[in-house]
Design a protein around this nucleic acid. Structure first.
Length: 341
RNA sequence: GGCGCCGUACCCAAGUGGCUAAGGGAGCAGUCUGCAAAACUGCGAUGCAGCGGUUCGAACCCGCUCGGCGCCU
């Protein structure tokens, strides 16, 4: 074993036995809870690299508003799955999974323990529990159904789904157009109802041995941190960044620009609201987002939650997380030693 | 001290004798298998400042009290 900079957790590379288990550490939690800073500290101690599971940080040229850690904040830790595409390009959970899986394999080959950090619950779930075999989305088909929805209303689409895939239709609300369209798309592309793919899959894949660490704080505190961060973003170039993107020809309805902050800034810049209203909505929508994240993460299986008290220093949070990681790795060894198979 | 106006949910607010007290905002709870920072769903007054009265029936009419605002002295 190689000695690391942190004497308490001397483990720079995984054993061969550990690598066989395909270990993975995931850090999740609501926005602004402080995931990035904790993750960077852990990565330093593990001498490893970070994979970001974030549907917004994949966009190039969108830095302030997506809260991308700056080069200085990264402290030399390699961050993957950031800056992959331009704001007018589409990304999705399937692409994320594919790229993340390859990167994880590469890290395992180097005997490193990959560290996934993310606020996008769907991406994390799909990485840890797989994705059903349904065909990927096809923009052309999707556009067709969108058109149909516009012209004939969501009731019409829902009726179509009810005959193509009654099980999924039963699960979905008639107004939930985006999920209805996805289900119709799957059926159209494969001839098989999405419910069949899902039933077969059931999120039962476990491609990795994952330790999932959930970071959380008291809700009021998370909300206050969100508001503070937004004030900081506005004082540090979010408006300029948005203006610049629009000047480069990106449109407000491009996938990248629909994210929190950018859509608010764009509305303000086009004169739809004054600055105070823009800030109010930006903060409100981000609070709501954090709340939805918590609803999602509460159901994320086998998550070890670390509640961070307001007064707790970063080092202490990191130390608590490292203890979880240490025992996780020990457990991997223990299983390895058991002569089962 | 006098006169007037007002008091409905956390906030705004409709209702001015008769269905189960509109609506909006905020909030809370939830759903989720390739757009997820998206999209979608659900939820609030056994009570109308308080007490008493009139009435078959009161948020609504009357009286007193409390609170707020305005004007006058």
């Amino acid at each position: 074993m190689v000695v690391t900079s942190c004497p308490l957790h001397a483990m720079a590379s995984l054993t061969e036995g550990q690598v066989r288990r395909k270990p993975l550490v995931v850090i999740l939690g609501p926005t602004a809870v402080g995931k990035s800073r904790v993750a960077i500290e852990i990565a330093k101690r593990l001498d490893s690299e970070i994979l970001t599971a974030d549907s917004r940080q994949v966009y190039r040229g969108m830095d302030v508003g997506t809260d991308k850690p700056s080069a200085a904040a990264r402290q030399g830790i390699v961050h993957h799955l950031i800056d992959l595409i331009d704001p007018d390009e589409a990304f999705n959970a399937g692409l994320f999974r594919q790229q993340a899986t390859h990167l994880i394999e590469a890290l395992h080959q180097r005997r490193l323990l990959p560290l996934v950090v993310g606020g996008t619950g769907l991406y994390v779930r799909i990485l840890l529990q797989g994705l059903c075999e349904a065909p990927p989305s096809d923009p052309r088909i999707r556009a067709q159904f969108c058109e149909e929805a516009r012209e004939q209303g969501h009731e019409h689409l829902y009726a179509r789904l009810a005959s193509a895939d009654p099980v999924t239709a039963g699960r979905l609300h008639p107004r939930d157009t985006s999920k209805i369209i996805r289900a119709l798309e799957v059926h159209h592309l494969s001839g098989v109802p999405m419910s069949s793919f899902q039933a077969e899959h059931g999120f039962s894949e476990r491609p990795f041995s994952a330790l999932v660490i959930g970071l959380n704080r008291e809700r009021e505190q998370v909300y206050r941190r969100i508001e503070k961060r937004i004030d900081w973003q506005l004082a540090n170039g979010l408006l300029e960044e948005t203006r610049h993107l629009l000047a480069r020809g990106y449109r407000r309805d491009d996938p990248g620009l629909t994210g929190l902050g950018y859509r608010h800034a764009a509305a303000y810049l086009s004169g739809e609201c004054d600055q105070a209203e823009m800030v109010r909505l930006f903060k409100r929508d981000t609070r709501r987002f954090a709340k939805r994240q918590m609803t999602w993460f509460r159901r994320q299986a086998e998550t070890a939650w670390l509640m961070i008290p307001e007064s707790e220093p970063l080092e202490e949070t990191v130390a608590r997380a490292m203890r979880l990681i240490d025992s996780f790795l020990s457990a991997l060894d223990a299983v390895e030693e058991t002569p089962t198979s």
